[in-house]
């Protein structure tokens, strides 16, 4: 099974470092995830030197997992589509995209962001059962305990709510 990891458009050093750690990789391997694709963005982590000389990606075999690491992937939609599990930062755009594709999602809010509302969104959606929220330190544990079938299906986009709101306001209905 395939895991896709993304940190968004900037960087999230602690999340990439955690994903490359032996504890997280062996937890993934135990759960049957043999391949992972990582979009690391501009993050700093121990293997980042493998990306040197203008290379866009590198491959690595570690703790029983085949890792493919990209600086930036052109289209994330394709990656979400192919993945059996997505691990990401808690940006609202990524969360919506992944949940709308009915993919199991573990988010790690980035605590270094100044105006941190990632944490709020992650725990609110976790309480509703749509995803699992974790931290860089607890990620291995979260993966071990994670049961994708226990997640609550996220409602599809319903444009009629805003349509009705504006139509009513503007006197069309």
């Amino acid at each position: 099974m395939l895991v896709f990891v993304t940190v968004g458009s900037t960087r999230f050093d602690a999340l990439v470092q955690s994903v490359f750690s032996s504890s997280v990789l062996s937890s993934l391997s135990e759960k049957g995830y043999s391949n992972i694709v990582v979009q690391c963005g501009n993050s700093e982590f121990p293997y980042v030197h493998l990306l040197a000389q203008g290379e866009q990606s590198f491959q690595l075999e570690k703790d029983g997992v085949a890792i493919e690491c990209w600086k930036f992937k052109p289209s994330l939609q394709v990656e979400y589509e192919e993945a059996d599990l997505v691990i990401s930062h808690a940006g609202s755009g990524t969360i919506l995209d992944v949940l709308r594709m009915d993919k199991p999602l573990i988010v790690v809010p980035n605590p270094t962001l100044l105006d941190n509302h990632q944490e709020e969104l992650a725990s609110a959606l976790e309480q509703l059962g749509h995803l699992k929220s974790s931290t860089t330190l607890q990620l291995a544990r979260t993966i071990q305990d994670f049961d994708p079938s226990s997640l609550v299906k996220f409602p599809p986009f319903d444009g009629s709510k805003f349509q009705n709101l504006l139509d009513e306001e503007m006197g069309f209905i």
């Binding site: 609202s92 509302h117 609110a124 306001e169």
Partner: peptide, 11 residues
Amino acid sequence: LYVESFARVKT
């Protein structure tokens, strides 16, 4: 009409 972002939960 102002629509607050989906990301804004508590504040």
